Each structure stands twice: as C-alpha cells, then as structure tokens.
Simulated assay, not measured.
Amino acid sequence: MARDNIYANMPMTEAAPQPKGNPPKTSVPSQHRAQGIVTAVLLLLGLALATSLLAVTLLYLRAQSKLQTVEEAVQKLQVSLQPVNASDASAKGSDSLQLLDEAQAGVRLLKAQLGNVRAAYGEIQIRLDNVSAAQAAVQGRCCDVLKTGFPGRWRFYGGNLYYFSQGKKSWDEAEQFCVSWNSHLTSVSSQAEQEFLSSENQGEAHWIGLTDRETEGSWRWADGTEYRADASRRFWAENEPNNHDPKNDGGEDCVHTDPRFRNLWNDYKCTEPFRWICKEAHG
C-alpha cells in the first residue's frame, strides 16, 4: 500500500516503510516540523522582546532614581536661596537664581525622559503579548492538522509527536516503520510521559523502543536516549524483566506496554507482533 494511503484510510494496515529521506511532501511530520520552526522563531523573538523589556525596566528605575536625587538637590537649593533679610537676598544675587532655574529645567527633562521610557515599556509589552498570541495560534493550527489528517493516529504531547499504530508488527518491523517517518520507537523519560502513552493505547499492548538484544540486561533506547535504571524501575511490571525461557524460546529482548498490568513494561520475544508507538522528538 502506498504511504499516502495512511492519510486517506485510517483503519487500514500501515504502509510498508519507505527509504528514509524520501517522505511525502504532504506528510504531517513534515508539516509539523515546519510549524515547529515557526514556533521556535516566535520563541526566540519573545525572548528578545523579554530581554528588551528587562533592559527598559532597568533604565526606567535608574532614571527614576536620578530624578529623585535631582529633586532633592533642587529642594535643598531652594531652601538655601531663601533670603534671611534684604541684604542677604542681594548678596545671593542673580547667579544663584539662574542655577535654580537650570536645576528645575533638568527636573523637567528627566520627567520627559521617564515618560518616553514608560511609552517604550508599554510598546514592548504589547509586542510580547502579540508574540505569545502568535505562538498559541501556531500550536492550535498544528493540533488541528493532527486531528483532521490522522484521527486516532498522531498525537502531540510535550513538544513531541507520537504515532500510535492500528496494525501489528514485530519489534524490528515497527522500528523500521518509525525510521521511515524520521522517528524511532518511543523512549519514556518521565512519569508524565508514561501516563500519556498509557492514556492513548486503547487497551492494547504496544512496542516501545527499549531492547537488550546486544547485551543481555544492558537496556538501551532505540532513539539514543539514555536508559536510567533507577528512574525506570517503577515502569516495569512486577518481576519484570525476566527474559523468560531463553534456552527454548530465544529469550525476551524487546519491551512492550502490557495493559494487563496498568500498561507497565514487559520484556517479550522481539518477533511477536504488537502495535507500536513512534516518537518524533522536537525538544
């Protein structure tokens, strides 16, 4: 079956993997990558605006502090210029009055500068709000594409794109399918991700990207994610992994989620057909 039929006929079996590097131009992962780039640009723009906002805030605080200092100096100058008597007023003369006028002019200039800073602050805040709105719109359109193009197939979560198959394949065939879509069988890095995968599995066992075929007991993720034994212990079903009957049955070197045990992990024969989950990481 051609890969394009994955979009058109959802209940049918997944198409055979195609060579990596030749995905259809209309594939959802490609569209999502393009929208991911737009989102990244918006995030960078938002970061730049936030930095500008911080700089303007610091400028405003400095100007306000300077204005307060000048106003205090003017007040002291006004007090010092108050004449004690007529002869004292004549002695202070016009030079001191001119100094007072210049100080008051400086105060007016600082107030004008503060007004400009306030205006710049408001403008940057508006732009920052616009960037946030644009980012939300991009994410919304991305979710709309997923719902329209692949109902029940692709899911977006935590910045990553996940594919839940309807057909069944061996672990190797499932990994080949994922690679043909620029992804891998999913890794699991947190309790939240494990719960998300469990909520989407429709009560079916699914292959994930964990295997110890190279060295028994040395588990690795297909996508290169570091396997952390201590953090992953809670995701295994009771008494698993057990590499059941390695002499007669070839052992169990691949891992699937087991709905019989709250979708916890179970090692099993890699040749057994199960549904599978691909994960395209976007960070």
Rank of each mutant, 00 (worst) to 15 (best):
S80T: 09
Q113G: 14
C278G: 01
E280F: 13
L59S: 13
T69C: 07
N266K: 13
R153Y: 05
K147G: 07
R33I: 11
A50L: 10
L97I: 06
R262E: 11
V179Q: 12
H184G: 00
Q202P: 00
R153K: 11
L197I: 02
E173F: 06
C178I: 03
L44Y: 06
K76R: 14
D253G: 10
E200D: 04
S87L: 14
A192H: 07
E252C: 09
F150Q: 10
R275G: 01
G21L: 02
A222Q: 08
R118D: 04
T26M: 11
F177S: 02
A112D: 07
G106K: 12
Q125Y: 06
L185W: 00
H206S: 02
S218C: 09
L43S: 15
L77K: 06
D223K: 01
D253R: 08
D267H: 03
V117A: 12
Y163S: 00
G93E: 03
T215M: 13
R234S: 11
L44R: 13
A229K: 12
Q35W: 11
N85I: 03
K25S: 11
D129F: 15
V84C: 09
A103Q: 13
N85G: 02
S90T: 09
Q68I: 05
A281V: 11
A8S: 13
W219H: 01
F164M: 00
T257S: 08
A105Y: 09
E214L: 14
G149P: 01
K111W: 06
A91V: 11
L109G: 05
T225G: 01
I124G: 02
Y7P: 01
A231Y: 06
A63G: 13
A55Q: 09
A237G: 05
C270P: 10
P273S: 06
W276Y: 15
W265Y: 14
V145Y: 00
Q75R: 12
G158N: 06
T57I: 04
Q135P: 01
M10G: 10
K169V: 04
L77P: 00
L97W: 06
N130A: 15
D88M: 04
G140N: 13
P246Q: 02
C270I: 00
A192I: 05
Y121C: 05
L43G: 13
C270L: 08
R213T: 13
L44A: 14
Q75D: 13
D267W: 03
A229R: 08
N239V: 06
T186H: 05
W236H: 02
M1H: 13
D212A: 01
P246H: 02
N263R: 00
E280R: 15
C270V: 02
D95T: 15
H282E: 05
A192N: 08
Q98G: 04
A103F: 09
G167K: 03
R118L: 12
T257R: 11
S218N: 14
K92R: 14
T57P: 11
D258L: 10
E123T: 13
D129V: 15
Q113R: 15
A231G: 03
D95Y: 11
Q125G: 15
S190L: 01
D144T: 12
